[in-house]
Design a protein around this nucleic acid. Structure first.
Length: 629
DNA sequence: GTGTGGTAG
DNA sequence: CGTTCTACCACAC
């Protein structure tokens, strides 16, 4: 109470949010295409650097954003694949997103970049809390559909799925529903605990579906906001899931909440929403050093660590002080309140509903040297061709005759312009923008050159760019001569003397055409789920006597990033990595489950036919029911 | 409506 | 830190 006053805002903990982060996504896309790569050190290259690599590669000392030369030296037998064309990643990301979206009632499923997804499952959890039998919580059934009570999975509502933060003490789990005999605040925390437990089981179900059906492992967090779900998810990486457990509020005796304890431990710059600039401003205020740069590479000497706790407890610091520190020209208003909220674990931002068309499409390339008009013309032509292609891929819809089968929506490669399908714009970009990043000019004296910045010019998107009867390549060429070159001259009036390190062209200001551009609000969840079922049939495990690939959430052997030596534990065989087919009968050879979860107890009983079976068989089993019934 | 800057992965 | 290739938002003009 007094605490709330100091914070200046209250946290609402009435939602359940799950955050998914696909493990080393780019590498996983290549692995899904070619499963033989799973057991080999694999790195994805863009230009001179490794943008990501799989965990086998990390085990051998590679890491993200490493120079290619360095990577080859550290690990000579690394397999390096080129990942500059993002098409396959974009398609895989969309397919995973659609797969995740199908069973989510609220439609609140938001992609962040290619490899992260937030889902709001508040309503699904609330519905299933009502279904709980308080006399037999251990044998609960989570309904994924309001209409079909057989669609769902069995779970134990007395314990969390995966990891908890803080780590659970054995036997401490709640084995009952709260009663009204408790104080209101205790009761509220107990209900929150139950809802988080259900959330964790739904998270686990979805995570296992992604792995078993599509061959992608992920790292997952469950809490009451996007901020907390995302932060807590990263506690157990990879292939782990973590739930931030109550108490979420400071108790009557002033004991800190788990939220505060958890968030306090993070470096200030690690909080989503607090980027480099804001973090630096806060750091210099806390450290008492006005706005100067960090000491930098003087080794041993960086005491520059400023944690969220340091900031939250700094004398005299509150949201108003923060507003004064962070505000100013260009800064969003209310930034102080916003950041102060984040520091206190408060994030009320909604999980956005799906957007059917992007706000903008941009293509860029970087260059070591680009200083002649001829080269610029050539590069603009390449970029323009890509842009036109992307506009067609992302903004066109194809009205085909066989509208009944919507299963294509779940395929990685959307519709191809087959035969005489009728093409139509879902949205039309109104603005064309050209952006360049000039290389810091060759400064005469010792003064250091200005920081690299992007500059841009924009103009109306020519009508011919949207003409579908014209050949795409010739459209692109016309775009160069009639629109991009003029924009370029506006940006760089001088005939020479410039040297560009980057060129970007973008189609923006999308005008959605009537009837299209649904945000998913018109979706029929039941129908979408049925569709997913249709697609799933292709991956269906034929023989339920063979376990599908089992997830390993062994927190001990997964933290390989910083290890120099490989322990026996680390190198042990892993069912997922051994998989020959990404989504079929891979299984642990000795039949032993080594994860902390998925322990098959004696078995579970089907709520429909009372058949007894191990838990891993249930997915296939209820699907069997849903297809028969 | 146009251009910049900051955020994110 | 920055290396890459994006996407979105908010502000100032």
């Amino acid at each position: 109470m007094g605490d709330d006053r100091r914070i200046g805002a209250k946290r609402k903990d009435d939602r359940i949010i799950i955050h998914f982060d696909y493990d080393c996504f780019y590498a996983s896309v290549f692995e899904a295409e070619n499963p033989a790569l799973r057991s080999l050190p694999l790195a994805v290259q863009q230009k001179q650097i490794i943008v990501t690599c799989n965990y086998e590669a990390r085990r051998r000392g590679l890491h993200k954003l490493q120079l290619i030369r360095e990577a080859r030296k550290v690990c000579p037998d690394v397999i390096i694949v080129l990942g500059e064309d993002l098409t396959r990643f974009r398609n895989a990301s969309k397919a995973l997103y659609n797969f995740l979206r199908a069973p989510i009632w609220s439609g609140k499923v938001e992609r962040l970049g290619f490899d992260e997804v937030f889902v709001d499952v508040t309503d699904m959890v609330a519905y299933n809390v009502e279904l709980l039998n308080r006399n037999d919580l251990q044998h609960s059934f989570f309904q994924l559909s309001r209409d079909d009570p057989t669609l769902g999975f069995s779970y134990d509502a007395t314990s969390i799925a995966g990891y908890a933060y803080p780590s659970t003490i054995m036997g401490e789990s709640v084995c009952r529903l709260p009663t009204s005999s408790e104080s209101p605040s205790v009761e509220a925390e107990d209900w929150l605990r139950i809802r988080l437990i259900l959330g964790s089981h739904l998270a686990q179900y979805l995570r296992h579906q992604l792995d078993e059906q599509l061959g992608y492992t992920s790292t997952v967090g469950t809490s009451t906001s996007k901020l907390l779900a995302k932060l807590v998810g990263s506690v157990n990486k990879p292939k782990g899931q973590t739930t931030l457990m109550p108490p979420y509020r400071q108790d009557a005796n002033g004991l800190d909440s788990n939220v505060t304890t958890f968030v306090d431990a993070h470096d200030i710059g690690r909080i989503p929403g607090i980027g480099f600039k804001i973090a630096q401003k806060i750091r210099s205020h806390i450290l008492g050093r006005p706005g100067e740069f960090d000491a930098g590479l003087i080794y041993g000497g960086t005491k520059e660590k400023v944690s969220v706790g340091d900031v939250r407890n700094f004398p005299g610091l509150d949201r108003n002080r923060l507003e004064a520190i962070l505000g100013g020209p260009g800064a969003p208003q209310g930034i102080g309140t916003l950041v102060w909220g984040l520091i206190n674990g408060i994030d009320d931002t909604e999980v956005g509903k799906a957007r059917s068309v992007p706000r903008q499409i941009s293509i860029e390339d970087s260059y070591i040297r680009l200083d002649t008009m001829d080269e610029v013309r050539k590069e603009l032509a390449l970029l323009a061709k890509s842009l036109v292609k992307r506009m067609h891929m992302d903004l066109l819809t194809y009205d085909e005759d066989d509208e009944g089968d919507g299963s294509d929506e779940f395929r990685a490669d959307q519709h191809q312009p087959t035969q005489q399908s009728r093409k139509k714009w879902m949205a039309q970009p109104r603005i064309l923008r050209l952006t360049t990043r000039p290389r810091p000019p060759p400064n005469a004296n010792g003064t250091r050159s200005r920081t690299f910045n992007r500059i841009s010019r924009s103009g109306p998107m020519p009508n011919f760019a949207l003409n579908l009867d014209e050949n795409a390549d010739s459209v692109a060429d016309k775009l160069v001569t009639e629109a991009l070159i003029p924009l370029f001259r506006k940006l760089h009036p001088e005939k020479s003397g410039w040297n560009l390190s980057l060129v970007n062209i973008a189609a923006t200001n999308m005008a959605e055409t009537a009837g299209e551009g649904r945000d998913g609000a018109g979706r029929d969840i039941g129908r979408m789920f049925k569709r997913q079922e249709t697609v799933l049939k292709e991956w269906r495990v034929e023989d339920v006597d063979i376990p599908p690939s089992i997830e390993h959430d062994n927190g001990i052997d997964n933290h390989v990033e910083d290890q120099r030596e490989v322990s026996c534990e680390t190198s042990e065989k892993n069912g997922t990595e051994d998989a020959i087919e990404p989504s079929q009968e891979s299984y642990v050879e000795d039949g032993e489950w080594d994860g902390d979860e998925d322990q098959p107890s004696a078995g579970i009983t089907c709520s429909v036919c009372n058949a007894l079976m191990p838990e891993w068989a249930m997915t296939a089993h209820w699907r069997f029911h849903s297809l028969e019934g």
